[in-house]
Amino acid sequence: MKTRMLSLTSVAAYVLVIRPSLQRWGTTIVERYAPMPGDDPSGQAKTKATRAVTVNAPSKDVWAQLLDVNGFVWEPTVGTMLPGRLAGMGFTVAEVEPEKNLVLIRGGADHALTRSAALHALSDERTRLVIRTSAWTAPNARGGLFGLYMDITDMVATFRLLLLVKRRSER
């Protein structure tokens, strides 16, 4: 009985406290609710995570680091797929405004994803990098498993990307 109660308490703590804070890591309340390029106008996304970091570098430097995919620098154009090892993940450029925003999309039978990155110049030498992931999953077992998988992998990948871009841009 104690084990079951501990398990339920742990799940409740994750769902009600830990997960929401991880999904909005580093953001201001305005960034969490402000519309971003690539947002689903129908509002059907099952999950939405917005994470951000302030980078002590100009937007052009942050943009250059955002486009450096494992040492392969690319120039995004609408309709192109991500280069290098990430190409197999199936992300396609849906929208791009250099040094401002980049929207990637990916879809499958049981899911659809949108990843948006927006750069906001705070000054000539400071930039705010905001990344939002929105996901829709089908109401079936595969969709549910994908949603759980996506929750974890998106969190790790986005934290890594934000901190990597910050570190490289601030050199």
Results as ranks from 00 to 15, higher is better:
2 K>S: 08
2 K>P: 14
3 T>Q: 06
7 S>I: 09
11 V>E: 04
13 A>C: 01
16 L>R: 06
16 L>A: 15
20 P>T: 02
21 S>H: 05
21 S>M: 05
21 S>G: 01
22 L>Q: 13
23 Q>K: 03
26 G>V: 01
27 T>Q: 04
27 T>W: 00
27 T>F: 01
31 E>S: 04
32 R>N: 10
33 Y>H: 11
33 Y>W: 13
35 P>M: 15
35 P>I: 09
36 M>I: 04
37 P>F: 14
38 G>T: 07
43 G>A: 14
43 G>H: 10
47 T>N: 14
48 K>S: 09
50 T>M: 08
51 R>P: 03
57 A>L: 00
63 W>T: 11
63 W>A: 03
64 A>H: 07
66 L>N: 05
69 V>A: 05
71 G>K: 15
71 G>Y: 15
71 G>L: 15
72 F>V: 13
73 V>D: 13
76 P>C: 06
76 P>H: 04
76 P>K: 00
77 T>I: 03
78 V>F: 00
79 G>K: 00
80 T>W: 02
83 P>V: 12
83 P>L: 00
83 P>H: 04
84 G>A: 00
85 R>M: 03
91 F>P: 09
94 A>K: 11
94 A>Q: 07
96 V>G: 07
97 E>D: 11
100 K>I: 11
100 K>Y: 12
100 K>Q: 14
101 N>Q: 06
108 G>S: 15
110 D>L: 06
115 R>C: 10
116 S>I: 10
119 L>E: 06
119 L>C: 02
119 L>T: 02
121 A>R: 01
124 D>T: 10
125 E>W: 11
125 E>F: 12
127 T>L: 10
130 V>K: 00
130 V>C: 01
134 S>G: 07
135 A>R: 11
138 A>M: 06
140 N>W: 03
141 A>M: 01
143 G>E: 12
143 G>W: 08
144 G>Q: 09
145 L>R: 11
147 G>R: 12
148 L>H: 12
151 D>P: 13
153 T>Q: 13
155 M>S: 08
157 A>E: 05
158 T>L: 03
159 F>A: 06
159 F>L: 13
162 L>N: 08
162 L>Y: 05
163 L>K: 15
164 L>P: 00
168 R>L: 15
169 S>T: 14
170 E>C: 14
170 E>H: 04
